[in-house]
């Protein structure tokens, strides 16, 4: 009887070990949302599927540069969170494994590639942030137009990410060129440059630096703005009248 009991226990343990090994999957992913948000996404995936996502955080621009350098032998299984330009480039270059997921049925077509090369898991926009305290101390109001940012009074007080490293900044630049046209768009960008203190590597960085009061204004990704407001940073945010 005792021998039978031990056999059953051993069999049960063996089954558990087998089941455990069957679900202990992991994948490597390049993830381009903010570190906080990457962690939330990875936890969600782990909780719901048991799959561990070994993530490498890089800015959107760095992910695209890395993919160009590594293709066609990538060091990751997936990209979770990248700029739209990277999705288009991956499709055109044959870097993605097409998979038409039935779970995305009913989602508006702007959020997915019909051949399943990429899926847009969420849109972010760029916004203007200001440090409430420093804005009040300077006696300035929140700018209402993107063009207001070229006023010399803002010299050295604006941050934005560099499009040479940040996919978010690439979209900012492309949006200004689309808004004003190529010639006037570049004139606007050059005028804005005169007031930029420096360009940040990551699209989110201006949110934190402005939130800490190091600069008055930042053109930044909106993805961390809610989190920083919740954290108590003295931030104001807006989308100037021309849009984002």
């Amino acid at each position: 009887m005792k021998g039978k009991f031990i056999a059953v226990v051993v069999a049960a343990i063996f089954s558990v070990v087998l089941a455990g090994s069957a679900i202990a999957e992991d994948i490597n992913a390049y993830m381009g949302t903010s570190p906080d948000n990457n962690a939330k996404i990875a936890k969600f995936i782990k909780d719901k599927t048991g799959i561990t996502v070994n993530q490498t955080f890089q800015s959107f621009g760095e992910i695209e540069a890395r993919m160009k350098a590594e293709a066609p032998n990538f060091n990751a299984d997936m990209v979770i969170g990248c700029g739209s330009s990277t999705g288009f480039l991956a499709k055109k270059s044959g870097w993605a494994v097409p998979y038409v997921s039935p779970a995305w049925k009913g989602v508006p077509e702007v959020f997915l590639d019909a051949q399943g090369n990429w899926y847009n898991i969420a849109n972010f926009s760029f916004v203007l942030v200001a440090n409430k305290d420093r804005l009040a101390k300077a006696g300035y109001k929140m700018p209402e137009s993107w063009k207001d940012l070229t006023d010399p009074k803002w010299k050295g007080e604006i941050l934005m990410p560099s499009p040479l490293s940040s996919g978010t900044a690439n979209m900012m630049r492309f949006s200004f060129l689309a808004l004003y046209g190529d010639d006037d768009g570049w004139k606007f960008i050059e005028a804005l440059d005169k007031n930029i203190a420096y360009y940040t590597r990551s699209g989110n960085a201006p949110t934190d630096l402005v939130g800490r009061g190091e600069f008055i204004l930042g053109i930044t990704s909106d993805e961390n703005v809610k989190k920083r407001l919740d954290d108590g940073y003295p931030l104001l945010w807006s989308i100037p009248k021309e849009g984002t």
Binding site: D26, I27, T49, I51, M78, G94, S101, A103, Y119
Partner: peptide
């Protein structure tokens, strides 16, 4: 986006499916 050369295609598909849901 699933990258060419992955040896974990099934896991990647599961993740794509998950991210298309309302909960995500």
């Amino acid at each position: 986006m699933i990258l060419k050369g992955t040896k974990k295609l099934d896991a990647c598909k599961k993740i794509i499916d998950l991210l298309g849901g309302q909960e995500f």
